[in-house]
């Protein structure tokens, strides 16, 4: 069979909403063509078939939140030549990392009657806290065209073309009127990594940071602008405490307003 020469790709799920792996199935125009070039070896959301590793590329969605998953990610790493994390949960701990700022026992008691049935860690942590990660694709959710680009790049042994600039720059490229300057709407665009195409300002609202911090973000400066436009500490804390709350720059900034 020609299958033997196709690179083996696996998709792994940790604590997440499934949206980032769904992005792969949302590539309606590309899916069958991509499937011609790769062997989908382990992708439980899409297939019953499980082909044993090692895998050429593993896509990892979700964060580590249980003792079992802490072990499982080691197994995934061992069986993968290249490990790529997809989305805010896998790269920053996700929205569920909000537990990291609280006592998780209170959380369990809020939700479950028999807390002893629930086996969970105190913190939700990104994959890179546990194993070496070869590439992190940002976003809550990821941009599906970036996903195709990253898979393509790794299968061809080249660097993915995913720019690192801020969402603010995207807005300028789109020709949007600045929502913060013109309307006083709080916007995380100046400190947020590009990837969505400045979607929120295009839809008349402020960026809420789905793609996490850009390289060297000046969060402190943004906070003083937010303050000038009338935001209080609680609002500033919540602004940085969203889907990428546990990424270091956003975490530190939110803690300074806590």
């Amino acid at each position: 069979m020609a299958e033997r020469s196709k690179p083996k790709v696996a998709v792994w799920k940790f604590a997440s909403c499934d949206g980032c792996q769904l992005s792969l199935l949302d590539c309606e125009d590309e899916l069958l063509a991509v499937a011609e070039e790769i062997q989908i070896a382990n992708f439980p959301e899409a297939s019953r078939e499980v082909i044993e590793g090692p895998y050429d590329v593993s896509l990892v969605e979700g964060s580590v939140t249980t003792p079992h998953d802490r072990e499982r990610i080691q197994m995934v790493r061992k069986s993968s030549k290249v490990l790529i994390t997809i989305g805010a949960c896998a790269t920053a701990g996700g929205i569920q990392a909000l537990r990291n700022f609280k006592d998780v026992k209170d959380f369990i008691n809020t939700v479950y009657a028999n807390p002893e049935f629930i086996d969970t860690l105190d913190q939700s942590t990104p994959i890179a806290d546990h194993v070496k990660v070869d590439f992190e694709l940002r976003g809550c959710p990821i941009n599906k065209m970036q996903l195709v680009e990253v898979i393509n790049a790794f299968l061809n042994s080249r660097k993915p073309n995913t720019p690192p600039h801020s969402t603010c720059i995207d807005c300028k490229l789109e020709g949007n009127v600045c929502v913060m300057v013109a309307q006083g709407t709080p916007c995380l665009g100046p400190v947020t990594h590009t990837g969505c195409g400045a979607l929120c300002p295009t839809y008349n609202r402020g960026c809420y940071g789905c793609f996490g911090p850009k390289e060297t973000p000046n969060t402190n400066s943004l906070s003083s602008w937010l303050k000038q436009s009338g935001a209080n500490d609680d609002q500033m804390m919540r602004a940085f405490r969203g889907f990428n709350a546990w990424s270091e720059p956003f975490r530190k900034e939110s803690e300074s307003h806590d």
Binding site: A15, L98, R99, I108, V111
Partner: peptide
């Protein structure tokens, strides 16, 4: 794994 949405919605706008 549980993600505790109802718990961390408390205190949000």
């Amino acid at each position: 794994p549980p993600r505790f949405f109802e718990a961390f919605l408390q205190g949000r706008d």
